[in-house]
Structure formats: C-alpha cells, structure tokens
Amino acid sequence: MKHWLLTGLMLAAILMSPRLAAEETKLEAFIAAQKLELPAQFTFTQERHLRGLPRPLSSAGRIEIFADQVIWVTEEPLEQSLIITRDGIVEHRGSEPQRGSEMIAQLLLAVLQGDIEVIQENFLDATTATDCITLVPLNRAIREFIESITSCGSPQLERIELQEQAGNSSTIRLSPITADAGQN
C-alpha cells in the first residue's frame, strides 16, 4: 500500500513539474512582453479607494521610469514630485526617504521596470485573470501593509492595482507618452 502511495506521489510530482515550469514561463513571458524600453514616460490617473470615504480620491500626473529610479509627478489636485529609488520614496533629491518606504519603493520599481528577477524573488504569482498578473509579496512585513499588486495589460502596461491589507485600494492607469507627444 505504502509503495503504491509513494509511486502515486512521485508520478504526480513528475506530471506537475512541467506545469509549474509552464506557469513560470507564463509569468516571465507576461513580464517580458510588458518590459519597457527605458527610459519611458507615462501619464497616469490614480484612484484611491480608502475605507470609510464615500468616493475615491483621484490624482493625475506623469511618471518617468529610468533604470535606477522613477520620477512620480502629480499635477492634480496638488502639485508634487516624488523620486522613487531602491532607498525609498523622497520628495526632494537628497532628502531622507520616508521611513519604511524602501520596501514599497523596491516593489513598485520592480513592477514598473518589469524586472523579472526582483519580481520572482519578492512575489508569489497569484494570477487568475488572463490579461493581468497578480503578485503577492513574499516578505511578511510588507504583507502587513500590502495584500497584492496587480499589473494589467499585455503587451502594453496599462494598469496597476494596489490592494492594501487595511481594505484600501489604488488603481493607477497609465498611458504612454510618445516621443512626439512628449515634445509637444
């Protein structure tokens, strides 16, 4: 009986392994397709649904994605410029990053830059939809704040959804700025 059970388990493992490999390939393929040629520029609109607020808070602006940083410029409702690097989120170059923002910043950078290595190191793939990937942070401290990050649009990155543990969520819609549009 034990031998049959063991054989069954081994067979299941053998049968499942290509499937796991295929899932990894799908994630890699998805990210690879989304991967941007850096530097890249987008306009964005952000909708934040905060628990207890009757309506979402909206903001809009543009983001510039570089290999080592993301410049996040909000134009409405308040003008604000943020620099997101591996060290964290800062409002002005040279200023101290907001405390505890470095982990969030690193994850956002990885998703925005399409860095498959960082994504595979830091997230569990929990994808259910076909045109999106849903990533769950592996880091338990980050999981205290962020439930998941969903990146949608293939091959073009269109939308990022941030689901917070406290029940809040943010949807960031992105539109690429072409070189011509940028010049205009």
Binding site: R51, L78, L108, E164, A166
Partner: peptide, 19 residues
C-alpha cells in the same frame, strides 16, 4: 492639511483609519 493631501496622492499604503 496640505501634507495629508500630498501623502494621500502618493503610491504608498495608508496605515490608519482616514475617517
């Protein structure tokens, strides 16, 4: 008030009950 508004438009989690 300005600082809170700026914080709310940042892509970082809100830890507290905003209400």
């Amino acid at each position: 008030i300005n600082a809170a508004q700026r914080k709310l438009q940042q892509p970082a989690p809100v830890l507290v009950d905003i209400t």
